[in-house]
């Protein structure tokens, strides 16, 4: 007999690991990455950068799936994501 699902719960979903890198002095504070992040990982920080803007900071590291949307939408190439798949 084949179960469509394991009787004692499903397998754990695949967890991605990686790193989010922010070049704080390149940021112009437009907030695109903060607004359009699907999991709301980022938020404005209280500190100022060289230009006087508030760069983003990571508030929920565990929520991030490293999808790279912030990297695609950033107009100043100030943020990028490296995704490492865990086997």
């Amino acid at each position: 007999m084949k179960y469509w699902e394991k009787p004692f719960g499903r397998e754990k979903p695949q967890v991605f690991q990686g790193s989010i890198n922010i070049f704080k002095d390149r940021c112009k504070g437009c907030g695109f990455c903060i607004e359009f992040c699907p999991n709301n990982v980022l938020d404005f920080s209280n500190e100022f950068n060289k230009k006087g803007y508030h760069p983003p900071e990571i508030i929920f590291t565990k929520k991030c799936t490293y999808c790279g949307l912030c990297e695609s939408i950033c107009p100043d190439s100030a943020i990028f994501v490296i995704r490492e798949e865990v086997k």
Binding site: K28, G29, C30
Partner: peptide
């Protein structure tokens, strides 16, 4: 040449990336 002259929250940087 960076940082570019485009204003904060201009869409041009995204278009160049794409």
């Amino acid at each position: 040449r960076m940082p570019h002259i485009w204003c904060s929250s201009c869409g041009l940087g995204t278009i160049v990336n794409s």
